[in-house]
Nucleic acid binder design. Structure first.
Lengths: 340, 340
DNA sequence: TTGTAAGCGTTATCAA
DNA sequence: TTGATAACGCTTACAA
């Protein structure tokens, strides 16, 4: 590809002038500029980003470190990040599946010179310490962080409050024996949702039983498997809160296979409000969180910091979770008529 | 952050030596190397990628241009790309939602100096020409291309064959009146699947009726809406092929709302085999395509080209589609007992 | 085995 | 309004 030197030669100007034209400097003659533009057009020239980054010490790119890319959740986060970044003329470098803290730090380090800042989602508590090693090297914004830090801004979802709300909703419908299918251990979202579940029970004066907390890993499959365990609890719970919608999908499927009617014999609630939630049978009562916005806010917070247009750093932002009532939990009347 | 010069000074060596150590050159003394490592460790040094790219003319990064990031399909493609790239020590720069061909070319251009090659998915026929303008500037691998080009390798899914297979399956079950819910116009996947549908009908000697091709846009919502139109066709189709699983989800939901039993009154088939497909009610007969592998092969093809380890260029690879029979299309017996 | 120095393609600081 | 020229941080001949 042509370099700035080729263009300068073709246009009969110095490389400084070409640079000025491409950076929209006003201090350049009109005809000179147009000569440069045509020369550049003819040669199909475009500035080399690496060279530009080197001199300006700015890359106009941001890195995204994620634990995983599986499923709708990450997909939406990335979409929010990409769209917001592109609006701000920033490019996006992604990297996922870091085995441990060291790998995470290595991934961050390898982006040195390529990105102006980092958005990190380190949900697993194991990788928690990594952030403290990364933050000194880059401006960082944390997504759904599992620990408080002053070294960077963070934005998260109201996992605790959302879970609390939906379980309170179940309580409100008259349920007392409420089970949950939990997410993977060590995952902060999962843990917060479990905490919210427990809190809601406590608030209702219900003692929480260990056997009512069924393990899961956020997959449909684990939700499906959880049904067996759920049905073996005696006395059988009248409601179950799945820590995410995917598991609720598996759960609904397995309950149907077992001939259990939802919500007539058991109420089911989820979390996330994925696109298919409203089309399930029955349509799923769940908690809506704006995952797209999570990515969007992360970018905005990071760029605010970069451009020094933010008032302070160490901000903590929590995006709201709202209860979406559909039919999978039934009504109070249904609860009363429930065949136990 | 510390530079190579700082490390050199701290270790009492020249910058060339530091560079050699970091690049694993064998021509460096053992104790010298360890002095460099400790100095680098103390200063928390890591090479600046921009500078490195500039001198080596290689970035060890690849760009990914996608039309969209919405949904499981893209999410899986990216996962395949990311995972394969990381194994090959390449970084991934993503960029999506390009309005038109010019925007696509601009996005590619803006990656100059940042990436060694590009993976492009330009499903919309409108952006087709863009690839010919990009290919001269970068090594390119095309995903699901809508046009043949010799200028780059391409890998795609067997959309046509897959659709043909699943519709033939419906024919085999005894269906004659088979409708389809199509994907968005201009989308190559959608068009290929529609073509496969038509071919299967033709192969079976069934004249295809225009009103049996219901428009959709790959969303659950459009599938839900399509049900209305489907049920208004007279005589009513006994089977329907949704061009993707998301639309099948909406379709199943709407049919249930209308009191239509699946597969007793109408058979439903989808395409993609998304994670929830097997947990739907009834479990969805669909076509499985390996979207993860699509991304994976794209990276491998691109890197093969870059490292000159590929035999030829202009390769055309098509990943197979396999029929996954579940319960949403019923059996021949069910077909025979169908209440029409 | 190690060091010196010339680039890589830009931007930015001077002068003119 | 323009043009030389020195960085930017690194790799890599070439010398020692």
């Amino acid at each position: 590809m042509a370099t700035i030197r080729d263009v300068a030669r073709a246009a009969g100007v110095s490389i400084a002038t070409v640079s000025r034209v491409f950076n929209g400097s006003s201090r350049v003659g009109e005809q000179t500029a147009s000569r440069v533009w045509t020369a550049a057009g003819d040669l199909d020239y475009w500035p080399n980003s690496a060279a530009r980054s080197l001199t300006t010490q700015r890359s106009h790119a941001l890195g995204v470190l994620l634990p995983d890319l599986h499923g709708e959740f990450f997909s939406e986060v990335i979409r929010g990040i990409d769209q917001t970044a592109r609006r701000e003329k920033f490019q996006v470098l992604i990297s996922s599946s870091h085995a441990d803290a060291d790998a995470l730090v290595a991934a961050a380090r390898s982006m040195h010179g390529r990105v102006d800042g980092l958005i990190i989602m380190a949900s697993d508590t194991e990788t928690a310490g990594a952030v403290d090693r990364i933050a000194p090297m880059f401006p960082v914004t944390l997504l759904n962080p599992c620990q408080e830090t002053d070294s960077c801004d963070m934005v998260s979802l109201a996992n605790f409050a959302g879970a609390q709300t939906v379980v309170a909703h179940l309580v409100g419908l008259g349920h007392h024996r409420i089970a949950t299918v939990a997410g993977p251990e060590g995952n902060i979202d999962a843990e917060e949702r479990l905490r919210g579940y427990r809190q809601a029970l406590r608030d209702a004066g219900i003692t929480h039983e260990d056997d009512q907390e069924i393990p899961g890993d956020f997959t449909e499959r684990s939700g499906h498997r959880a049904a067996l365990q759920l049905l073996s609890i005696a006395p059988r719970p009248t409601a179950v809160f799945a820590a995410n919608d995917c598991m609720a999908v598996g759960l609904l499927s397995a309950l149907h296979e077992s001939g259990i009617e939802v919500p007539d014999q058991i109420a089911v609630a989820g979390f996330d409000d994925i696109a298919t939630a409203r089309y399930l049978r029955p349509p799923l009562t769940t908690v809506r969180v704006d995952t797209f916005k999570l990515g969007q806010r992360a970018v905005q917070l990071l760029l605010d910091g970069l451009e020094n247009r933010s008032p302070t750093t160490g901000q903590r932002e929590i995006l709201p979770a709202t209860l979406v009532v559909r039919q999978s939990c039934g009504s109070t009347r249904q609860r009363e008529q429930m065949v136990l």
